[in-house]
């Protein structure tokens, strides 16, 4: 009987799609060095989707929000040659795309619109980094070499090798899945994370591009998984999208 119950549980989770999980408030040490912040960074309690948004969910969204369909979305908000270009048509996934795969090739603007339609928003980098530091049993697993290697192993696969579906890996200690190992994810404030385009001069961020934001640099140089995520996000403009970049939404507590 037990496997049946378990299967049913999974089914429910899949049917619900991305439910939200309450993330308790806390402090953590960011991998990034903020000029205006010494020591730990505080994160207020909030809610985060347990899984990345899927193709199926995003398809539903564009059907009800026609302005975000491929071919209709403004090029300024979604680079037309890439945006949802893997779907068969603007309103059908086609045989090669699974509704259970995380949606990719979405711009920051489109991801933001999706979350807003849910009464939500994209998580901030801090909110994301705070939760993504956890493994199945620890809130901060970042010093665990095996955990890092596991993440790096995903980085070693080309994005062309085929995308998995959501909900297949164990949840971390917060009950959140697939923060690593499936897709990169947009964050609300990604554009404020610009480090220098020449990543060797990280201690000397390009201040001219920040308009007053604190200069950013990578503090924990051993934490390559996060360093690479920052590098990827900082290479993008808001209308850009890639075949391995998705998102999930977050909600502030009322």
């Amino acid at each position: 009987m037990r496997p049946a119950v378990l299967a049913l549980g999974l089914l429910v989770a899949a049917a619900q799609g991305s439910g939200y999980q309450r993330i308790p408030a806390g402090e953590y040490r960011s991998v990034l060095k903020y000029e205006d912040l010494k020591g730990n960074r505080a994160v207020a309690a909030y809610e985060l989707m347990t899984q990345p948004v899927t193709n199926g969910e995003f398809l539903k969204f564009v059907k009800s929000h026609r302005e975000w369909q491929r071919g209709r979305a403004l090029p300024l908000y979604a680079e037309p040659s890439a945006y949802l270009s893997h779907w068969q048509t603007s309103t059908a996934l086609g045989a090669n795309v699974s509704s259970q795969q995380p949606v990719t090739r979405v711009s920051w603007f489109a991801a933001t619109a999706y979350c807003e339609a849910q009464g939500a928003r994209l998580p901030t980098w801090s909110e994301w980094e705070y939760v993504a530091a956890a493994d199945e049993t620890h809130r901060d697993a970042r010093q665990d070499r095996a955990w890092r290697e596991r993440i790096l192993a995903w980085y070693a696969q080309s994005a062309g090798t085929g995308l998995g579906v959501v909900g297949r890996t164990p949840a971390n200690v917060y009950g959140v899945q697939e923060l690593h190992g499936l897709v990169w994810e947009w964050t609300e404030d990604y554009s404020a994370m610009l480090v220098s385009a020449d990543n060797r001069s990280q201690s000397e961020a390009d201040r001219a591009r920040f308009c007053g934001a604190g200069a950013l640099a990578v503090d924990d140089r051993e934490n390559y998984p996060v360093m690479m995520r920052v590098a990827l996000l900082s290479s993008l403009r808001g209308a850009d999208s890639t075949s391995s970049l998705g998102f999930r939404c977050a909600r502030s507590l009322r």
Binding site: A197, D198, D240, S241, T242, S243, S244
Partner: peptide, 15 residues
């Protein structure tokens, strides 16, 4: 020149 071109060639996937 700065970065030997690196500062001018940071390129996201598909760009």
């Amino acid at each position: 020149g700065p970065g030997g071109g690196a500062t001018s060639s940071f390129t996201a996937p598909g760009h």
